[in-house]
């Protein structure tokens, strides 16, 4: 087993394990921290693919900004249930219940099985490319030439999300009329 495969295995396990804990953690702050760990794992996978710039962005934006903001939102939230976490319920009882355990698990397992089977026999088009020594430059160039329109539209998507967040949450007295 070569070292790269080993690193891939470890990083994938970290990513998936943390992602699993995100949805099973009792406290939402714990879930947020596991989410950060999962993002770190993805950053490692980017590094394995020689995408150093993407790895750095992943760390800065997802781990640094998004997770921090999520934790802040939880801290500021007034709803007791969100801060304290849902009432504890037996893990095994949950797993064995039809509505929350058996049926979703069976559906997910079936989907995963089918997709893995199809992956195994697919004719993947992707070919390995030589590592780019200067990924930042290439990304910048692509962004302002080939991907100019998507780049601009992405900024509008952010704009609408920002306006929406303000409109839906701002209190009445905040605005001078």
């Amino acid at each position: 087993m070569n070292l790269q495969l080993l690193a891939f295995m470890i990083l994938s396990l970290v990513t998936l394990g943390a992602a699993f804990k995100v949805i099973t953690a009792r406290f939402i702050t714990h879930a947020a921290l596991y989410l950060a760990l999962s993002f770190v794992g993805v950053a490692g996978l980017f590094l394995l693919l020689n995408a150093d710039f993407l790895a750095a962005v992943q760390l800065l934006v997802y781990v640094g900004a998004i997770t921090t903001m999520l934790i802040f939102a939880v801290m500021l939230s007034q709803v007791e249930e969100i801060r304290q976490g849902a009432a504890e319920e037996g893990f095994w009882r949950r797993i064995l219940s039809a509505r929350f355990g058996v049926i979703p698990l069976a559906v997910a397992a079936a989907l995963a099985g089918v997709i893995l089977y199809l992956y195994r026999f697919a004719n993947w088009k992707a070919v390995p490319v030589a590592p780019d020594p200067n990924t930042t430059r290439s990304i910048g160039q692509a962004m302002f030439t080939t991907y100019l329109i998507p780049f601009e539209v992405a900024s509008l998507v952010l704009l609408v999300a920002m306006i929406g967040a303000i409109v839906l949450t701002m209190k009445k007295e905040d605005r001078s009329r």
């Binding site: 991907y147 329109i149 998507p150 539209v153 992405a154 509008l156 998507v157 609408v160 999300a161 306006i163 929406g164 409109v167 839906l168």
Partner: peptide, 18 residues
């Protein structure tokens, strides 16, 4: 392009949720 279709879709959808 799939990318522009997806971005247009998200722009429309996020606006619609709001």
């Amino acid at each position: 392009d799939l990318i522009t279709i997806y971005l247009g879709l998200e722009l429309t959808s996020i606006s619609s949720y709001i």
